[in-house]
Amino acid sequence: MATLLEYLPLIIFFAVYKFVDIYWATGVLIVASVIQLAYHYFQSGHIATRHWIFFAIALVLGGMTILFQDEQFIMWKATVIYAILALLLLVSRYVFKKNLVEKSLIGLLKSVSEKEQGDNTDTPIVIPQSIYEQLNVMWMVLLAFVSALNLYVAYNFSLDTWVNFKVFGLMGITFVAILLTIMRIYKYLPEDNS
């Protein structure tokens, strides 16, 4: 359910674009993002910083798209988001000496383990630091590549092709990256979690 909610504004954007146009789709994307923020707030009592950042980018670039009737602004949204994420991984790792991929995976694995075993999470999940470092670099490079790839598709192909790429291409690339991450850590997971 949470994964569907993350992609819901994108799915609605795609549907409205196909039936109306890019400007209506952009407006609906902004409204869907507001609804998504409200849902997160009522679900957990707070809104994660990343959701605020993604909403702000959608609001600013989407608003400019509608105001100036120029789809190029909304085309930059994915590039800006993926570039920020790549930059966060880079700066957090090499300036602040923190591996955000490691923190995310530890939190996710702990959450999954607690759901499966209740409070009896006696088996620690031990993944070598070198694996976390490899995954951090993989995600950093992938996000930077996708950021540039979005612009390449936006400026070298039709608007229809870009919208299809934004929805299906970016989602597919993300899915493959998640799959590669799981494959890389799979052998370190306890039997109960695998």
Rank of each mutant, 00 (worst) to 15 (best):
67 L>R: 10
138 M>V: 01
152 Y>L: 13
12 I>S: 11
151 L>N: 12
105 L>W: 05
7 Y>Q: 08
80 V>L: 10
31 V>N: 08
58 A>Y: 07
141 V>K: 06
86 A>K: 05
14 F>K: 02
58 A>F: 10
5 L>S: 11
154 A>F: 09
178 I>S: 13
81 I>H: 00
8 L>F: 14
160 D>I: 11
95 V>L: 14
191 E>I: 08
189 L>S: 05
146 V>H: 00
50 R>I: 15
174 T>P: 01
74 I>H: 02
19 F>N: 09
168 F>S: 03
143 L>P: 02
92 S>M: 15
25 A>W: 01
137 V>Y: 14
73 F>I: 10
44 S>T: 13
153 V>N: 08
189 L>P: 05
124 P>Q: 09
57 I>H: 04
66 I>Q: 02
56 A>E: 04
7 Y>H: 03
61 L>T: 08
44 S>A: 15
30 I>M: 10
18 K>H: 00
136 N>R: 03
187 K>M: 07
25 A>H: 00
146 V>Q: 05
80 V>P: 04
181 T>N: 02
178 I>Y: 11
180 L>A: 14
72 Q>Y: 10
127 I>P: 01
193 N>C: 09
161 T>C: 10
174 T>F: 14
36 Q>L: 11
194 S>Q: 15
120 N>C: 06
61 L>P: 04
183 M>Q: 09
160 D>F: 12
71 E>V: 11
52 W>I: 11
143 L>Q: 07
156 N>R: 11
71 E>L: 07
78 A>W: 01
25 A>S: 05
28 V>E: 03
100 L>Y: 09
73 F>K: 05
126 V>S: 00
28 V>K: 04
47 I>W: 06
147 S>I: 01
193 N>R: 15
83 A>L: 14
175 F>R: 03
110 K>Q: 15
31 V>G: 05
52 W>Y: 15
134 Q>C: 01
15 A>M: 13
69 Q>K: 13
70 D>V: 05
194 S>A: 15
169 G>A: 03
88 L>E: 03
120 N>M: 14
96 F>Y: 13
13 F>H: 04
113 S>T: 05
181 T>C: 03
121 T>M: 01
122 D>T: 14
159 L>R: 13
43 Q>Y: 13
32 A>T: 09
123 T>I: 01
125 I>D: 08
16 V>K: 03
83 A>N: 02
188 Y>I: 07
122 D>V: 12
2 A>I: 06
119 D>I: 06
159 L>Y: 00
180 L>E: 06
102 E>R: 14
91 V>Y: 00
78 A>E: 12
101 V>M: 11
69 Q>G: 02
106 I>A: 08
143 L>F: 13
21 D>E: 05
76 W>S: 09
142 L>E: 07
5 L>R: 13
2 A>Q: 10
181 T>L: 07
102 E>C: 09
75 M>G: 15
16 V>F: 02
5 L>E: 11
97 K>D: 15
174 T>E: 12
